[in-house]
Amino acid sequence: MLLSNPVSDELKAINLALRKRIYAKEEIRERLARELGRFCRLSHFSQQEAREWAGGREVAAVDGSVNYLGALFPYILCIFRALARTTGGDRTAVTEVFSPLLPHHYRELTDLSREQDLDNELAVNIVKERKLVAFELQVAMETVVRKSPRLVIFDGGFVRYERHAPEAWSRYRQLALEKEIFSVGLIEEAGSFGLGRELNLAHYGNPVFDRELLLGLMEPGECFLVDFERYVKKPAFYTAFARLSRNPQAVAFDFFKEQARYASGVLNYLYTITPAGGRGVPLLLDIVDAEARISDREMDLLLEAYLDVEVRERFFAANRLRRDL
């Protein structure tokens, strides 16, 4: 590969600029502990402790996935799939296919774009988020009603649910609180910047994201619990951070404010079911993720089996996939 000088020079400059943005670990730790909350060590539950903590109830995990065919609006087709699975093996799944090529789906889309004053193409993204969130909540709800688990682990933060399906979310929240079902939203790539904001950190007006601060900040098995009266994201949620494996990137966890006092118990349990050498995500969530996801190969097989060649070629085939190089 040939790189002309300007590109490499620019990259060097960016490197230098970003290096300046890296804060000293000790300073951040010290400030966090002084101003926002406390660092704690998590401990593995023994099997007995785990049993006592669960009180004979199961643990559930919820995940959703979306697969695309096609790229250019409106020649797209999405397959939504949401799955909730309990440790007892109970599974609830919802699947839906969506394509703006179909009149009723198209109408759904245009209604939204008119209402929000958006392009159709942008509206697709919103529809996608809404549907995914709705399906995830639907399977979570069914599981909660039927199985009343000790804990429901969501793949992703709570903000998503509140934003895209406020009514369903509030119904879920109410039921979960009523039945004392712990709920936790696990955010692998913490895109929040609450910590930086609270510490008044900014870089020439640019917010400093939590993930920047958290990388390598904690030891494996350490967590940062924000003081209960402080909130770093939304008043309704309580957020904690933990490094559950040797992977240096910490993970963020959303709890209901009302369940904040159970956070350390939940974190201990999540720490227990997270492989020490993995990416820091509890195994159960990975398992549900793997089950919910439709692999590219499965997707190809499905489409080949149920769409005629002509339909596929006329409506969905992207010419760039035919590139040889």
Binding site: H44, F45, S46, Q47, Q48, A50, R51, A54, R57, E58, V59, T86, T87, G88, G89, R150, S245, Y269, T272, I273, T274, P275, A276, G277, G278, L283, L284
Partner: peptide
Amino acid sequence: GLVDEKVLAGLQAVGY
């Protein structure tokens, strides 16, 4: 990575 024994025990405790 290796799936540690504690992970399996932790899941077993809640029925998995």
